[in-house]
Write a protein that binds this DNA or RNA. Structure first.
Lengths: 132, 132
DNA sequence: ATGTTACTTTAGACATAATCTAACTTTCAG
DNA sequence: CTGAAAGTTAGATTATGTCTAAAGTAACAT
């Protein structure tokens, strides 16, 4: 499972397990608190360290959201992201292929991945705006 | 120019002017420091306030970058973004149309915009990696 | 021009997010 | 087992961004 050069410690396992069980893109703080509601305990620094390591190992993806704390998800199926302008929630969107840039546009850059981000109002906020 | 309900104050003008003259996606701190190297002076709070207002008015775009401070650009031509994994720099990429999601995928969400983000190594970091 | 008023600016305190430090503990290959 | 590299910890520190309350000013009507 974690044959990416990372040792399998209880704390690291807990972070990974939590992300796999909760597809809702939690923040680092939410992960830290959730993991610490049960054994094994984990300090804040460790939670951040492990998130960084898991992201580097390619097992977890970090999603930066404007004006808010970063969010994380376990890299399961490939997917795009929908970010709500109002509540900041991040939702998975079904994957579909995107045309890559031409090599002329790319120049001497090395392309690793292409990510599509949709913005607008999520289902809940959409409904509230119509009523409010 | 700023007929978006925003008053044209010297401080606000300075922020907008700086962004138009510097297409390199500066951070809020960089903007704050640059603006304050010359008149008119502007406090940190004002710089943040104005960035927020300009983003809300649609004149400036904010780009969240994983693990780093947010970056800003004046909304000129439509463009995509390339974010360097190593140095975090944000570069503009030539615009091209992206297929929108199907209404089934979208559900009851309200779509405002679609943003494409490329990740990898910028020209400079690409060269360094080959050498180092 | 002048007055009015809502919008802006300001300094500095406050809040939040994330990293660093240095001592201690654990994992795991051999 | 055992040792060394990797991981963990609490708490301080840095970085980033927001809030407050008082003072200032742009824009508009007169």
């Amino acid at each position: 499972m974690e044959d990416s050069g990372l040792r399998c410690t209880p704390q690291r396992y807990a972070v990974m397990a939590f992300l796999m069980e909760h597809p809702g893109h939690p923040t680092a703080t939410e992960i830290f608190e959730a993991v610490n509601r049960m054994d094994p305990r984990s300090s804040r620094a460790t939670t951040y360290n492990n998130l960084r390591d898991l992201v580097q190992a390619g097992l977890v993806r970090e999603v930066a959201v404007e004006g808010r704390a970063a969010r994380f998800d376990a890299r399961g199926k490939q997917h795009h992201h929908f970010i709500c302008d109002r509540c900041g929630n991040v939702e998975d969107m079904e994957w579909y292929d995107i045309p890559k840039p031409t090599s002329g546009t790319l120049g001497k850059r090395t392309l690793r991945e292409c990510e599509l981000i949709f913005r607008g109002l999520c289902t809940k906020c959409s409904a509230q705006c119509r009523v409010g």
